[in-house]
């Protein structure tokens, strides 16, 4: 998967889970500050990514921005 494909996937899940507009979800968006997610929302986003991409993710991997999530997911997908 390319970074763009992973970003699109993350964006879909974030839009669905956090009920935010798609154009608000950018690579540099801060998940907690800009998208107003809390720790349980992050659980749910990680859970969805695990299910859809068949990978294992830790929720507390220090992800702060969407870019962090995309890079972390890409690392796990590439290692599969």
């Amino acid at each position: 998967m390319t970074e763009q494909e992973i970003f699109d996937k993350v964006k879909d899940i974030v839009v669905e889970q956090l009920d935010v507009d798609a154009d608000k979800v950018k690579m540099d968006s801060d998940i907690k500050d800009d998208l107003e997610a809390d720790s349980l929302d992050v659980f749910e986003i990680m859970n969805e990514l695990e299910d859809e991409l068949d990978i294992k993710l830790e929720a507390d991997e220090g992800v702060k921005t969407i870019k962090d999530v995309v890079e972390y997911v890409k690392k796990e997908v590439d290692a599969k």
């Binding site: 659980f43 749910e44 859970n47 299910d51």
Partner: peptide
């Protein structure tokens, strides 16, 4: 998180 995921699935 594991229990949360278990429950919601």
């Amino acid at each position: 998180r594991d229990v949360y995921k278990f429950a919601t699935h």
